[in-house]
Write a protein that binds this DNA or RNA. Structure first.
Lengths: 303, 303
DNA sequence: GGGCTCGTTGCATTTTCGGCAACACCGATG
DNA sequence: CATCGGTGTTGCCGAAAATGCAACGAGCCC
């Protein structure tokens, strides 16, 4: 909105690190930006940027100011959303940062379900590891984060959380697929493994558990893409390891839970930024997502 | 600040209830206001005011908007205060709503002490009964409220609270002034009473206690001004009733606590608006005030 | 030192804001 | 039922603010 124009200029300069780059992104002249910055600094009675030969960097006052600006923008968005909601038609936007494990089924299904009810609501879904997802929420780039094994952070407010046991994934012809009860980890390790790499929480979790037991891991293939691992498992007799929610409904694939004695369940968390008021759309989507995750938990237990 | 100009126009129109009145207060033409309102309504895609023959009234969307505007203004003020605090010189402003009982000693002393340390900090002190004081905090007209017997409200966040027993107040020549230990209420009632009227929490508290005991109150003089009651007690043999903190250090006056069996202590509360982040100046003043109230309590116990 | 990027400034231009006066509307009043 | 006093709104014009363009001076890198 109009009154935030000047302030958003400041935010963009802070993002870009230089007036000229910001000017290009904003499609205005650098001189205009210089003046706006000078006006604000005059109004505040103190500089907000450090002038370096390479560009502009925020000083302490600027950090506070930019934080304020982001708050304002987000809060205005929330108000607009609430106002739109008054008229019955729900509009708005939801920005979600989620782990790779959820892009296969959970998030697409939930977004589809939500948009079926409220087609006017738009979505931004970013796939991020747990560290980056938290950062996105803190930087107001995402309203919600759906992640596995979140690093404990006082800035996050948990909206829902549950614990899920990893499942060994293999194709239907694989020897391990003959049964469908829990499988011991050592039985999996007897076969070639196709595992997520260390950029993913699943692997970190597994490495930790193996390290405690002093077991060494021999890993035939590793990848940062869960989808690649699944596709590999379709083609050769490897065992992969995935979160229940991430396993597609494919008759050619089988999965069995890892035995509880071998591996702790992993924590799945839906969270928002502590102290932030979400837009109507984001809040309602979070409600729906939490309820659905809960339902998915229940049904997987009864399977 | 400049970017809030348009928004503060809206807030002022909401306050005044009409464009012309707001225009007068703001020293601009009504036409300018009309346009600003139209711009905002266009940007939001919905009207914000109902147009009545008598003026403008906020609709539901407008209520949300004005709430947002007040948040913005208060938050900006907080940021400015934090920024000023970075440079070592503390500037800023503190708006306090307090009960009459504190204007004699507590608040003047505390404001003076604070301003001795930070002369750049300005103060606004409003004297309000407990209901109005809460309203002032909720409407962002005050940062802090220092009140007696606050109505329970979920919108308030308590920063400090204690319980104080009322004291009977009389001049030094008064028969009751011969002793200085606790005094029974019935002994006070045997003399002519000069009491606060029902606009003050002290009287409501007293009436409630007497009603429970079925005692009838005969009150010689009543007034909404505690200062008047004290001055009267200097001139004739009446007994008044005041909060310990409100009694000036005057050798011609004596006071004795009411016996605990006759009257519950009253609750003194320092509070802010729930969920609001105070400016540095207001937060530090609240700290000082709470600490001082605590100290005053201690010393009055050991008296 | 030349070349590069940076922020900044002076001046002309465009856009926005504000004031003034007239208009249209509604409710109370005579 | 007309009038009057209050309201918000609109058209027009001048003032003020924002913007673009081009040129300048300062710092860094090769």
């Amino acid at each position: 909105m109009k009154h935030l124009r000047t302030l958003s200029y400041v935010a963009e300069i802070a993002r870009s690190g230089s007036i000229r780059r910001a000017a290009e992104r904003l499609n205005i002249a650098p001189s205009a930006l210089t003046r706006q910055v000078q006006d604000i600094e005059y109004e505040l009675g103190t500089p907000v940027f450090e002038r370096l030969a390479q560009g502009m960097r925020l000083n302490a006052a600027g950090e506070l100011l930019v934080r304020h600006i982001r708050d304002q923008v987000a809060d205005l968005e929330r108000v607009r959303s609430q106002i739109a909601d008054l008229s019955g038609v729900r509009r708005g936007h939801v920005a979600l940062a989620c782990s790779q494990a959820f892009v296969t089924r959970v998030v697409p299904e939930e977004v589809e379900a939500y948009r079926a009810r409220f087609p006017q609501v738009g979505f931004t879904v970013q796939v991020r590891d747990h560290i980056q997802a938290v950062a996105a929420v803190v930087a107001f780039e995402a309203d919600l984060a759906l992640i596995i094994q979140p690093p404990p952070s006082a800035e996050l407010h948990l909206l829902y959380s549950c614990r899920q046991q990893l499942r060994a994934l293999m194709r239907a012809e694989h020897p391990l697929a003959k049964s469908d009860g829990p499988v011991r980890l050592r039985d999996c390790l007897a076969h070639p493994m196709a595992l997520p790499d260390r950029s993913l929480a699943i692997r970190l979790h597994l490495d930790q558990a193996l390290a405690r037991r002093g077991v060494e891991l021999k890993c035939a293939v590793e990848s940062g893409s869960l989808e690649f691992l699944r596709n590999l498992a379709l083609r050769e007799d490897v065992v992969s390891l995935q979160i229940p929610n991430g396993i597609p409904d494919d008759p050619r694939l089988r999965s069995r839970p890892i035995d509880d004695r071998d591996l702790e369940p992993m924590t799945v968390v839906l969270a928002q930024l502590q102290g932030r008021m979400l837009s109507v759309a984001a809040a309602k989507f979070a409600d729906q997502l939490a309820a659905s995750l809960h339902r998915r938990m229940q049904s997987s237990v009864t399977d």
